[in-house]
Design a protein around this nucleic acid. Structure first.
Lengths: 208, 208
DNA sequence: CTCATTTATGCCACTCAGTGGCACAAGCCT
DNA sequence: AGGCTTGTGCCACTGAGTGGCATAAATGAG
């Protein structure tokens, strides 16, 4: 990010990234439950105590790429000029901007592994959902400070809709056949999912 | 439920309910993290090994009332006649039917405790969200078997909207001032939250 | 360059959730 | 009563996560 001055900071970032990369590699090979923290720490040559100074838990390191994106989303909302307009579109724009900013080629591949881990490991999935909801709460607080939002249920419901669209986009992106993972495609899928929301609301089904 | 014949079955249900009641009481007093499973098991006079034959984990016993309701929701969808109509309304009806069936006075009070625990204990919240999503996936599979649904994103997005509305209804219900907890009010709040979904989609905000 | 201060790390011992295996007891069937 | 099935208790074990304290590495001032 900003490898400018502080030597110490760079070391920390390197350690953090080493933990993420190694963790994703090992989890990808043997599954989340097939790797103990002791193994991971030994591989990175770091004490377990140190691991917990970088991550809140085992699940966090597995979801780091996606969590980083959500944090970027939050920053995007905090720094963007408070324009008016449809709330959902506003959040969508910030999400896409965050995605565009944080995602390089390596990110896409890491994010893919993260998502797959979350899909076949209940505790990781649970943690991931919790992180989303938690971030969305903060998002709504930030927006409340910058926009004139009603005290309604509606802002929160709009936020949950964005999250739903995001999850669906990610799901389609991760299970699609072709390699390699591409960030442009993910962006397109987010757009499509958000655009599908109104249709989902009124969808009518017939008996079989 | 059906205390008809098998003595063994009744004993099991009694043990299960004792675990739930005692757990919610203790968690309510000292918080989720302030009670160990050993304490809980000692109180109920059951071995820890037995606890894990009834519940998948510590979080499960805390969320048992709400999880029971979701299971009832699923049954409702499986047994109800497959009528056509707006998908969201269909799911809403089943949810309300399940709520009406499972919730007596005692349930409301237990559910309230459960929800509060989920709100101030991250791991419980995470577990709860995971359970919802997991159930909703099953719901969509069931509906796919009984209704002629498109392969679209839309059914899934509709499901997530219902979940969002449910969460919001529960939130308002749990943080409302008056006592005691009332199931009718919860039902009304679910209706309101679902009705607010279209407005959330198009909500427009102005800068402050 | 050196010393004091700050900050990150390592190590150790500990709690507690969750699991596997096996022996035992309680409900069940005829 | 008899065996048969099923639920329970006990025990030892793994692994995540935490607190405390000593050490080492970066930083800043002289």
């Amino acid at each position: 990010m900003t490898p400018g001055s502080p030597l110490r900071e760079r070391k920390k970032q390197r350690t953090r990234q080493a933990l993420i990369d190694t963790a994703l590699t090992l989890f990808g090979e043997r599954g989340f439950g097939g790797v103990t923290l002791d193994e991971l720490c030994e591989e990175v040559e770091v004490s377990k105590r140190t691991f917990f100074r970088y991550f809140g838990g085992k699940e966090d390191v597995a979801m780091a790429p996606l969590e980083d994106m959500w944090r970027a989303f939050l920053e995007e909302l905090e720094t963007a000029a408070p324009e008016g307009g449809p709330l959902l579109a506003l959040m969508e724009d910030s999400l896409l901007a965050a995605l565009d900013r944080v995602a390089d080629e390596a990110w896409a591949s890491r994010a893919l592994t993260s998502y797959r881990l979350s899909q076949d490991t209940p505790s990781v999935n649970a943690h991931s959902l919790h992180f989303c909801e938690s971030t969305m709460r903060t998002v709504l607080e930030v927006l409340n400070g910058r926009l004139d939002l009603p005290g309604d249920p509606r802002p929160r419901l709009a936020g949950d809709m964005l999250v739903a669209a995001w999850h669906h986009a990610l799901d389609g992106w991760a299970t699609r056949p072709g390699e390699p993972p591409d960030k442009r495609e993910l962006i397109a899928r987010v757009r499509d999912a958000v655009a599908a929301l109104p249709g989902a609301l009124t969808l009518t089904a017939n008996p079989r």
